[in-house]
Nucleic acid binder design. Structure first.
Lengths: 334, 334
DNA sequence: GTTTCATTTGTAACCGGTTACAAAGTTGCG
DNA sequence: CGCAACTTTGTAACCGGTTACAAATGAAAC
């Protein structure tokens, strides 16, 4: 049988209260007693059961992470890493909830499985409606957003998508590109926040720049579809001289399919990504770098502040992005 | 204030026991009473607090996943997905613990943060020593291994690494390759179980096959180092005609660096990966496919059986692997 | 030697359900 | 109608710590 606090108290010749204090508030126990208790605890193999502490404090020491899709992609993996690193040290655990689609999301907020089961909810890369926010509010669970600055969130950390795309476009335009294509993967409308901001920025800039031609390709996931896009690019009357991809993970396969279709990068077409993820350096991909691990760590700190009743002075943070120039972009030929 | 079971009992005009039963063992409550209680609960916005149930049952409804490294790579991400899908339905949460290095691992087993905090520990892709196993045993926490068949585990799910490498080698040898290089990333010795099995198989086969030349390259992570390996390959007096990579993620960057060094795939050299991960299909990489999501789901089921005291009939499972032939491998020139 | 205040320790109520046990209510059947 | 057997509900102990409050101890001040 597992040793209880009473066993330890008896063995150390003190009260259960003293044992409890030894572990939860050691400064309230005299050096001498503390040592005695520690000894008794070690001999009995005692350790504080977390469940009892949880019950009494009413806190679950658990934070839920919601993310769109069912796959943990590069970005989500980094978010988990960043959150975990901070939360773990503060005594909180992270529990991840993949939200496949809009329906799943609705179901989540209806059932609210985190009710009395998580101290806070962190949402990555998708928006939350007013009604859903209210559900959480009424359950008194703080809501923190990553990569989303919707006013629904008590706190948020994100990047300036618009600014980042502007930087990318200015870079390409300074190289001389005037016919640029933007490629992104189709997504369930409300599940991907940042997508809109980036695409909007692309359209805005193209609209504002005289003589600028911009095309948007939204592709389904899958090799074949990507091939079709390439076909379209190859045959386009006025083929774009540069390709700006919504994420690196879209850009990388193009390196191969392009080649198979007789197009060289960057000779025939420049390619830019977004994220500076895994293989970007390997393939020499020019991209916009962001640091989701750091952002997530920041988000975790905000979350803990909210849980523990310390309203953060500045609850809406913007993480920096930077342009990383590699070999996949050059001035257009001719 | 959050409504308690007593509030509901009073409102519904029944005892707290009846309310409790309504939620935990509905079949013990009459239809009529149940409805009354449900109604009262809904009106008060009552929901069963998990912590109290946890305390009473002694179970945490939480499973810990340990994995080597600090990064969630493709494989680990898939494992998390697979585990989560099954665990969640059974009412368990998954908590992930990255174990950076051997020291961190030792620290983990010494402190045993899962004590009274997790109902089971699942270990992905690394071995656990006898002493560490005993630590857990004495804490009465079942230990399940993924991609590791060490006898230390109460249950395990893995692939037959040796068989898989044999399949790959036979395929390459049947194509005519007699000079094959194996490439893997250096790893902390005890943190990567499967590595050994694969490398051992490679060496064994090379040794058994007359006229076979096999070289092993262990590289550090990083673009530059990979470049150096390529240099070595290019200049090798008898350059290998095929490259077998320990994981796809090693193979993929080679597609670029090879090209930059004037080598064509598969014309000058055939390349094979292992995993069939993210970009393998995109680049036409011949590889060994495994399904870590399915394996992890299986592992989760075994884990739950162990937690709930149903010893699994067959606790050590082997997941299938298969050869996926794409365009990166051909018969050697000449 | 008191009085006062700070430190250390003990007693017991409490967190919020769960469940063993007992009691009350129903139904079936001779 | 009486009694057995089953269903439904209530009472209260219990899970394993935490903490408010009180008491005891010790040190400093008068």
């Amino acid at each position: 049988m597992k040793a209880s606090i009473e066993d330890v108290a008896r063995r150390a010749g003190v009260s259960t209260a003293t044992v409890s204090r030894t572990f939860s508030k050691p400064h309230l126990v005299s050096e001498h007693t503390r040592r005695k208790v520690q000894e008794a605890a070690d001999e009995l193999g005692f350790f504080v059961s977390r469940s009892a502490a949880i019950l009494k404090s009413g806190r679950m020491y658990r934070v839920a992470l919601l993310f769109g899709g069912t796959q943990i992609d590069w970005f989500t993996a980094r978010i988990i890493e960043g959150l975990n690193s901070v939360l773990r040290d503060a005594g909180y655990d992270l529990v991840v909830y993949p939200i496949g689609d809009d329906e799943a999301r609705q179901a989540f907020f209806d059932d609210l499985p985190v009710r009395g089961n998580a101290d806070a909810v962190i949402v990555s890369s998708f928006d939350v409606g007013e009604r859903q926010r209210q559900r959480l509010e009424q359950a008194k669970v703080p809501l923190v957003g990553i990569n989303s600055n919707s006013p629904a969130f008590s706190a948020s950390v994100g990047i300036d998508d618009s600014q980042a795309v502007t930087t990318a476009m200015h870079y390409l335009m300074n190289l001389g590109h005037r016919n640029i294509a933007y490629v992104y993967e189709k997504f369930s409308n409300s599940l991907q926040y940042s997508s809109h901001a980036r695409i909007d920025a692309f359209e805005r800039i193209c609209g504002q720049t005289p003589g600028m031609q911009g095309t948007i390709y939204d592709i389904d996931p899958g090799v074949e579809v990507r091939g079709a896009v390439i076909g379209a690019l190859v045959n386009a009357a006025e083929r774009p001289t540069a390709l700006l991809c919504h994420q690196d993970s879209i850009a990388i396969p193009f390196f191969f399919t392009m080649q198979q279709n007789g197009l060289r990068i960057p000779g025939d077409i420049s390619v830019m990504g977004f994220d500076d993820s895994q293989f970007a350096a390997d393939v020499g991909l020019t991209t916009i770098r962001q640091d989701p691990v750091a952002s997530a760590a920041e988000a975790a700190r905000l979350t803990i502040d909210l849980i523990e009743g310390r309203p953060p002075e500045d609850p809406h943070l913007m993480s920096p992005t930077s342009l990383v120039i590699r070999s996949s972009t050059v001035a257009p030929a001719g």
